[in-house]
Measured scan of single mutants.
Amino acid sequence: MATVKFKYKGEEKEVDISKIKKVWRVGKMISFTYDEGGGKTGRGAVSEKDAPKELLQMLEKQ
């Protein structure tokens, strides 16, 4: 499965596409929420050019 690499609050993070719950576009950025486990929801964003094609496909399906 594909992963998304991004920075959040200065920390490098990587999340599996299957854990992503919601995806939306903000200008040229793709924002998303994902399941961190333990009932927590994380947030992240990547630029449109750095987003994996699976993430862009999720955006188109909504």
Rank of each mutant, 00 (worst) to 15 (best):
S18N: 11
F6R: 00
R43N: 15
A51T: 11
F32V: 03
G42H: 11
D16W: 12
K53S: 13
S47T: 07
W24K: 03
V26M: 12
G37N: 10
D50S: 08
E14W: 04
G38T: 11
F32M: 03
E36C: 12
V26E: 12
T33R: 09
D35G: 06
L56C: 15
M29T: 10
K53F: 13
K40S: 14
Y8H: 12
V26Y: 12
E54G: 05
G27E: 07
G39I: 14
S31E: 12
E12T: 10
K5C: 03
T33W: 12
E54A: 08
E48D: 10
F6V: 02
K21G: 13
E14P: 00
L55P: 00
T33I: 10
K53Q: 14
S18R: 09
Q57T: 13
K28P: 10
E11F: 05
S18D: 06
W24D: 04
K22A: 15
K61C: 14
K28N: 07
K13E: 01
P52M: 04
G27R: 08
E54W: 05
Y34P: 00
E12Y: 08
K22M: 14
R25H: 05
I20K: 00
K28W: 05
L59T: 11
K5W: 02
K53M: 13
E60A: 15
I30S: 00
G27I: 04
K40V: 15
F6P: 01
L56F: 06
I17F: 04
K40F: 15
V15D: 00
L56V: 14
K21R: 10
I17L: 10
K40E: 13
K5P: 01
T3Y: 04
K7G: 04
K22T: 14
Q62H: 14
I20D: 00
R25N: 10
V46A: 05
G37W: 11
K19F: 14
V26G: 04
E14V: 05
E36A: 12
V4R: 00
E60T: 07
E60S: 13
D35M: 13
K22R: 07
I20T: 02
F32G: 01
K53I: 10
K9G: 06
K5Q: 03
K9E: 07
K61V: 10
T33H: 15
K9N: 09
K40G: 15
E60Q: 07
G39A: 11
K9W: 05
G10I: 01
L55N: 00
A2Y: 04
V23C: 12
K53A: 10
E12C: 12
K21P: 02
A45V: 07
E14I: 06
E14G: 01
G42E: 13
G39H: 11
G44L: 02
D16F: 12
R25A: 13
G38F: 08
V26I: 07
D16K: 05
V4M: 02
K22G: 13
D50Y: 07
R43Y: 10
L59G: 04
I30Y: 10
D35Q: 12
L56P: 02
I17P: 02
E48A: 07
G42Q: 08
M29I: 05
V26P: 03
D50C: 13
T3F: 06
E36T: 08
A2G: 11
D35L: 09
Q62N: 05
K28V: 10
V4S: 00
D50A: 11
G44R: 00
K7S: 07
S31K: 11
Q62K: 03
P52Q: 04
K49T: 14
K49E: 13
D16R: 12
K21F: 15
D50W: 13
K19M: 14
V4Y: 00
K13V: 06
K13G: 02
F6L: 02
A2F: 05
K49F: 11
Y8N: 04
S18Q: 11
A45P: 01
K28S: 08
E60I: 12
K49W: 07
S18C: 15
K53G: 12
V4A: 01
K40W: 14
F6S: 02
P52I: 13
L59Y: 12
G37L: 08
G38W: 07
G10V: 01
E14F: 03
F6E: 00
R43I: 05
V15E: 02
W24H: 03
R43Q: 12
K7T: 10
E60H: 15
A51F: 03
G39E: 06
Y8R: 03
T41V: 13
E12M: 08
G37E: 07
E54I: 05
K19P: 01
K19Y: 14
M1Q: 09
Q57H: 13
M29F: 07
D16E: 10
M29E: 10
E60Y: 09
R25M: 08
W24Y: 04
K21E: 14
K9Q: 13
L55S: 00
L56R: 13
L59F: 09
A45I: 11
M58Y: 11
Q57W: 15
G10L: 02
G10R: 01
K7E: 05
M1P: 09
T3I: 08
G10A: 02
Y8I: 05
G27L: 10
A2W: 02
Q57N: 11
G42N: 09
Q62D: 14
G27D: 15
T33L: 06
K61E: 06
K61M: 08
K53Y: 10
V23H: 02
Q57V: 06
V4Q: 00
K40P: 11
R25V: 07
T41S: 12
V46S: 05
I30D: 00
L59I: 12
E36V: 11
K7D: 03
L59R: 03
D50N: 09
R25Y: 07
E11H: 12
F32I: 05
L56D: 04
Y34H: 09
K22V: 14
V46D: 00
K22L: 15
M58I: 13
A45Y: 14
F6Q: 00
D35K: 08
W24P: 00
G37A: 11
E60C: 15
G10K: 02
K21V: 12
D35C: 15
K40R: 12
T41L: 10
M29A: 15
V23D: 00
G37D: 07
F6N: 01
L59Q: 09
E60W: 04
I30C: 05
K22I: 13
D16Q: 14
D16P: 07
G39D: 15
F32W: 01
G10H: 03
Q62P: 11
R25G: 08
L55A: 01
V15Y: 01
D35V: 13
K5N: 02
Y34C: 01
V26T: 14
E12G: 03
V23M: 08
D35I: 11
V4D: 00
S31Y: 06
M58P: 02
K19N: 12
G42I: 06
K21L: 15
I17W: 01
W24E: 03
